[in-house]
């Protein structure tokens, strides 16, 4: 077993060029790699010097470089919108020192099943920017569905439209720090006590995540009526396997409880037309 060799490219093009080496692996923060191990890795391409550590807010659009750490993302978004869904979710990911090390790009590349990132990114309609063989900008759901996008390619960043919608995030764990059994992201907007816009994503389900489009459709354009919400939440199909918090039935119940709670919070009267 030969030991892998490290490379420290200084621009994106040379990093992508290095993908032609035998058994390459990108290194961002390193936490994912240490979990993955080094089996079948001959060359490690370090991404620290690519200047992908940036955050931009322009034309009501937020762009974040792939090498930005979770704590840097939080710090940046706090300057724009304290009530951001991404702040709520990333503040709960890992621990303080881990958030200093985990990068947006690394997290997207490994997409660990307990990820606190993908729920909010789906809810926020984020897009993933990729350079290399599959150069392009991919809607997050497409990016998740199709792992081959990462072949000979490098995630350089994400972008998403800035919105002032109300939001809600819930992370189901046994202790505060602990990997999420499921996460729940809700974004909504109301006008004259009518649901104008709504996006609901639950991660940790059997298929990694569920975007509850059926429920969204049933509620959009309807008056804010929590009895009606409750009826529809109860009839929504959620697919969980048993997890450390309990049986699939229990987790389903827990998720529905917090889903309804979240909807109530997002559509409280105070939040009208803010």
């Amino acid at each position: 077993m030969s030991e892998p060799k490290w490379y420290y490219p200084t621009d994106v093009d040379s990093a992508i060029e290095l993908l032609n080496l035998n058994e390459p692996l990108f290194h961002a923060g390193g936490t994912g790699i240490l979990m993955r191990g080094f089996l079948g890795v001959s060359n490690i391409i370090d991404l620290q010097n690519l200047k992908l550590n940036y955050t931009i807010c322009q034309n009501k659009n937020i762009t974040i470089g792939a090498m930005t750490s979770f704590s840097q993302v939080i710090k940046f978004i706090k300057t724009i919108n304290l009530n951001s869904l991404l702040i709520k979710s990333l503040s709960r990911a890992g621990t303080t020192p881990l958030r200093n090390r985990i990068t947006l790009g690394g997290s997207l590349a490994f997409l660990p099943p307990w990820s606190d990132l993908i729920g909010p990114l789906i809810a926020l309609n984020a897009k993933v920017e990729v350079k290399g063989l599959n150069q392009g900008i991919y809607p997050i759901q497409e990016f998740i569905r199709n792992p081959s996008i990462q072949n000979k390619s490098l995630i350089t960043g994400i972008n998403y439209p800035l919105s002032d919608y109300s939001n809600f995030y819930h992370r189901a764990t046994l202790t505060q720090v602990g990997f999420a059994n499921f996460t729940l992201s809700i974004i909504g907007k109301q006008k004259s006590r009518t649901v104008e816009n709504l996006k609901i994503v639950i991660t940790g389900t059997k298929n990694r995540y569920q975007n509850l489009t059926d429920l969204e459709q049933k509620l959009i354009d309807r008056p804010v009526d929590f009895n009606y919400f409750e009826k529809n939440v109860n009839s929504t199909q959620l697919d969980f396997s048993a997890k450390e918090l309990g049986s699939s039935e229990y987790i389903t119940r827990l998720a529905k409880y917090h889903l309804l709670n979240g909807l109530q919070q997002v559509f409280t009267e105070e939040k009208e037309d803010k």
Binding site: G30, T31, I33, L34, D46, S71, T95, T96, N100, R101
Partner: peptide
């Protein structure tokens, strides 16, 4: 990376040194 006994500060960032590759 979950106990914090190995924390160090790298360029002002608090990190778990067990979760950082020396290279």
């Amino acid at each position: 990376g979950l106990c914090g006994a190995c924390l160090v500060i790298i360029d002002q960032q608090l990190v778990n040194s067990c979760q950082v590759l020396a290279a």
